[in-house]
Design a protein around this nucleic acid. Structure first.
Lengths: 250, 250
DNA sequence: CGGCTCATTGAGCTCTATCAAAATGAGTGG
DNA sequence: CCACTCATTTTGATAGAGCTCAATGAGCCG
């Protein structure tokens, strides 16, 4: 059973946060950086397949993903699972639990994930003393809302083929912006994940992905999806892309 | 063509805001109330069917719904429409446009709607000077995210009958919390709206709603859905309800 | 090797979409 | 009040998309 556990290397100092190197994220002022350093409590590492947060958890911490891939999901009582969105470096998780008392979804790691852990109780201080960071948190929440809107449009109104193309194009574009790929673009998901994201059965998902593979848009290899033609996927989905910059993180 | 237009009765003073009477909303301090009064620029009225915000709009205002029902939606290029969520009194709309520069969805009125209009430029002041209100905005955004998660679970994994029951139970519960019903609970939507929310065709939606009506859970009357048995709907959907209190508004 | 997960494929069936048409009701103008 | 129009709701027939069941192969690990 994979688990989440504290790392020995207690703390990467925020000044050397690997995320800061990427231009998709906005710059911090010295003052903000100083506060965030104190806000950070430590780090956590999760193996692939580990559950990072469970639905119903009460006093979950607040995390920022430093590296790795994961996903948020909900389940119905009989086990039907719906993947809501994917989490990647720079994403904030656990905000719901912090703000509203109880997590309404679970989070699981797709690959080894390392997380930055924040002091839940200091969130109010952040709002009181660092309004620019408070604004960033709202920005992040609004951005998540926007992505969920797009997913909803996709599941509700796109055909199976369009949906699959949209999902993979979406993950590809996010991964590319975050410079997660070296050479070939490989997304660490199984077809079961795709099925649970698109609201399709595993069998039909397989047949749909096969069609995309036959068009030379993707290739499926050892529990991962390799993207061969990102633009082709976007065209197949009729999707414009997300085109963002200056994304904040904490 | 229905339109949105400024009302003559320029301003209901925030001290007498009708929303404050409802216990689902949290109390304001005198200081907060004072700021919000100055933050408010005026009011807007929209007829049923009017478009309040269009996707792509650049400098949209920030609104709070004072009365009436509406919905947020997105469309694909060929016209397929997906309703993302419904807006009701106390809901904040236009945050995306304010925070990220451009609206990614449209908003339309289902019934006559009156809106409170806020000074977009003063939002930064709110974050700087009134962190409790800033926190409320984040709360509202996180709450919207939670609802979208539930909708996604519903569309992705519930059957047509469960989905329909969930949607109507959801709208009923929100309306009830907001005390929108007097006597009989009537939700001002057409079956086309239901179809576009559930990701189903209009014909199949009709047949599905008929099943709910045959079970005496709902009755369809003159462009509206009358709820006969809210608990029965929740049971049919396998849905727990939203159970919230102390909801903030601005 | 045996047991596991994941990907793949075929067959048959169910659910949902599409097409077509009629019934109902609200609103309009005469 | 009636004739007319338009949007909405309803129903039936048929096609197609997607589901379930079943079985197989490949790769991995103890």
């Amino acid at each position: 059973m994979p688990t989440a556990r504290p790392t020995h290397s207690f703390k990467t100092p925020c000044e050397h946060c690997p995320l800061r190197a990427n231009r998709v994220f906005r710059e911090f002022t010295a003052d903000e950086l100083d506060f965030v350093s104190k806000f950070k409590r430590g780090e956590l590492a999760a193996d692939a397949g580990a559950t990072i947060i469970v639905e119903g958890a009460h006093s979950a911490h607040l995390f920022t993903v430093l590296s790795g891939w994961g996903f948020r999901y909900k389940t119905l009582e009989d086990g039907r699972r719906q993947i809501l969105n994917y989490v990647m470096p720079g994403d904030l998780i656990g905000l719901q639990g912090t703000i509203m008392g109880e997590m309404q979804h679970s989070v699981e790691a797709l690959s080894p994930v390392s997380l930055c852990v924040f002091e839940r109780d200091k969130l109010m201080t952040l709002y009181n003393k660092h309004s620019s960071l408070a604004f960033d948190i709202t920005w992040i929440a609004a951005q998540e809302e926007r992505i969920l809107d797009e997913h909803l449009l996709s599941i509700g109104r796109r055909t199976a083929l369009e949906r699959a193309a949209y999902l993979i194009a979406f993950l590809f574009e996010r991964g590319r912006q975050l410079k997660l790929f070296n050479g070939h673009a490989s997304i660490p998901i199984t077809q079961q994940h795709v099925a649970d994201t698109l609201g399709l059965s595993i069998v039909h998902t397989n047949k749909t992905l096969k069609k995309l593979a036959n068009r030379n848009l993707i290739r499926w290899q050892e529990r991962a999806c390799e993207v061969l033609d990102g633009e082709g996927l976007k065209a197949a989905a009729g999707w414009e892309g997300l085109g963002e910059r200056g994304r904040p993180f904490i």
